[in-house]
C-alpha cells in the first residue's frame, strides 16, 4: 500500500464523487454541474480518509486496462453460473453435491479480498461463508475436490490473475 499524499487521495475522492453525481442527475446543465462540484469538494474533504488508501494510484493505466478486461470476463462467468444454476433447479432429480471447502489466496489487500469474495459469490456454484486472514471458507454446491489446493485451483485462481494487478 505505502504512503500516499493527502492531496492525491482527496483528488481521487472528489473525482469519483463528481462522476457519481453526474450519473445520478443525468444532465449537463451548468447549474447542476456547479452544485455537484461544490458538494463533491466538501464531501471529499470529509471522507477521503475512509474512502481510499492509494489515491490517484488507482488510475494507473495498467490497472484501468485490467479492470476493463475484467468486466466482460466477469459478466461471462456470471451468465455461465446462472445457466448452471438453472440446470440444477429445473432438473427433476436436483443434481447437487454440496459442502464447505477451504481455499487460500495470495491477495493481501483488504479491498482486493472484498472484490475476490464478491466475485466468488456471484460465479459458478460457490458462495463465501467466512474469511479469516488468507483462508476463505466457501460453500460449494457441487464439490469436485475436497483438498485445500484443489479447491483453490478451481475457485480462486481464475480471478486472482486479474485482481492481483488491479488491487495489489
Amino acid at each position: 500500500m505505502g504512503e500516499t499524499s493527502k492531496i492525491s487521495r482527496y483528488l481521487y475522492t472528489v473525482l469519483i464523487l463528481f462522476i457519481i453525481w453526474l450519473f445520478l442527475t443525468g444532465s449537463l446543465d451548468p447549474q447542476e454541474v456547479t452544485i455537484g462540484a461544490i458538494f463533491a469538494l466538501i464531501v471529499g474533504a470529509l471522507t477521503d480518509e475512509v474512502f481510499t488508501e492509494r489515491g490517484l494510484g488507482n488510475l494507473n493505466p495498467k490497472r484501468v486496462l485490467y479492470f476493463t478486461a475484467y468486466i466482460p470476463y466477469f459478466l461471462w462467468a456470471m451468465i455461465m453460473a446462472n445457466l448452471d444454476v438453472a440446470y440444477r433447479v429445473l432438473h427433476p432429480k436436483r443434481p447437487i453435491n454440496p459442502g464447505i471447502v477451504e481455499c487460500r489466496t495470495v491477495l493481501t489487500n483488504n479491498v482486493g479480498k472484498l472484490a475476490l469474495a464478491n466475485s466468488i459469490t456471484l460465479t459458478p456454484g460457490t458462495i463465501t461463508l467466512d474469511v479469516k486472514g488468507d483462508r476463505y471458507f466457501i460453500h460449494w454446491i457441487d464439490v469436485k475436490d475436497k483438498s485445500v489446493e484443489g479447491a483453490s485451483e478451481n475457485i480462486t485462481k481464475p480471478f486472482e490473475k486479474f485482481l492481483k494487478v488491479i488491487f495489489e
Binding site: 446462472n82 444454476v85 433447479v89 436436483r94 458462495i127
Partner: peptide
C-alpha cells in the same frame, strides 16, 4: 422453493436474482 437447505437456497436465489 426447491432446494433442500438454507445454504443451497441462498446459492441459487442470490445469483439468479442478481443477474
Amino acid at each position: 422453493i426447491r432446494m433442500p437447505d438454507v445454504y443451497n437456497r441462498m446459492q441459487t436465489a442470490t445469483k439468479s436474482a442478481t443477474l
